[in-house]
Amino acid sequence: MKGRVPAPLVFLTTLGAAFVLASGFSWANASTANASAATAKAAARPDFKMPFQCGQRWQLTTYTGHNPDDKKLDMFREGGGTSGSAVLASAAGRVHQWFDPGGLEIDHGNGWFTVYLHMSARAPVGTVVPGGGWIGTAGSVGTGVAHLHYEQLYDSNGDGDGETDEMVHPVIQGTEYRLTPQGPFPFVTSANACGSGPYWVDTFANATGYKDAQMNDAQGLLYAGTNYVYCKVWGREVRVGDQFNHWWLRTDLDEVYAGKNGRNAYVSAYYLSRWGDDEAKDNNGREIPNC
Score class of each variant (00 low, 15 high):
G183V: 00
A205F: 06
H169E: 15
V201T: 02
P130W: 11
L179Q: 09
Y210V: 06
G131W: 02
W234G: 05
Y228K: 11
G126H: 12
V145Q: 04
N206Q: 08
W134D: 09
M119A: 03
G158Q: 10
N206C: 09
Y210I: 06
L148A: 02
M167P: 04
R236P: 02
D161S: 13
T203S: 04
Y116K: 05
G197E: 12
T226H: 14
L148F: 02
W200Q: 05
G136R: 00
D242M: 15
G133E: 04
G144E: 11
G235V: 01
T180Q: 14
Y150A: 05
N227C: 03
V238C: 08
R122S: 00
F185N: 03
N227V: 02
L222H: 10
T127C: 06
E163R: 11
G158F: 15
T203C: 01
G220I: 01
V229W: 10
L148R: 03
Y199K: 03
P130D: 15
G144R: 07
V238Y: 12
T127N: 13
D155I: 14
W134P: 13
A224W: 06
T226C: 14
A218I: 06
G183E: 05
L117Y: 14
G133V: 04
V141H: 12
G197I: 02
V168I: 14
H147M: 06
G220K: 08
V240P: 08
G225T: 03
R178A: 10
D165S: 14
K232S: 10
D155M: 08
V240L: 13
G136F: 10
G220N: 07
V145A: 00
C194Q: 12
Y230T: 06
G241Q: 06
G195H: 08
Q219F: 07
V188R: 12
G162E: 04
V145Y: 04
E166V: 09
R122Q: 03
V145L: 10
W134V: 11
G235A: 03
A123D: 10
G241D: 04
T143F: 07
T127S: 15
G133Y: 09
S190K: 07
S140W: 07
Y230D: 10
Y210L: 03
V141G: 04
E237R: 15
S156V: 12
V238G: 05
Y150G: 08
G220C: 06
V188M: 13
T143M: 07
E237I: 13
D217S: 14
